[in-house]
């Protein structure tokens, strides 16, 4: 059972306080998008062995969504940050690079 740090209220709590919400940094495709783009948005999710970015909600706590950068193999959490961003902040990327040089996730590295 993981421990996660909520960047919104500062609580470091156990996984049962949080709900996982799937892949982070998705770009929404609405009306007017191609079938392929829409399919990718809805269904073509990353399933990496290693560095991953996930949405979590502090459901039993402050109710806020945030993003966790973590490793799906070692379960190491590289960092968490508020959801109001389109890409991982530089300090999170640096923290990952320090541990996993050469990592890539979608367009990010």
């Amino acid at each position: 059972m993981l421990i996660l740090h909520c960047p919104c209220c500062g609580v470091t709590g156990e996984e049962t306080e949080f709900h996982q919400g799937g892949e982070a940094h998705l770009k929404r495709e609405g009306p007017g998008s191609s079938d392929e783009a829409f399919h990718t948005y809805l269904f073509a999710k990353e399933n990496p062995r290693g560095v991953h970015f996930e949405r979590w909600r502090h459901a039993y706590g402050c109710g806020k969504w945030f993003i966790a950068a973590r490793d799906t193999v070692t379960l190491e959490v590289y960092g968490t940050y508020p959801a109001q961003t389109h890409e991982p902040p530089p300090e999170i990327r640096e923290a990952i690079t320090a541990k996993r040089p050469g990592w890539r996730w979608r367009a990010f590295a």
């Binding site: 709900h19 919400g21 929404r28 909600r57 459901a59 109710g63 806020k64 969504w65 959801a83 109001q84």
Partner: peptide
């Protein structure tokens, strides 16, 4: 409520 907050916090913040 969670669904609403999801869109408000993560898409149309």
């Amino acid at each position: 409520h969670g669904h609403m907050e999801d869109w408000l916090q993560c898409e149309w913040w």
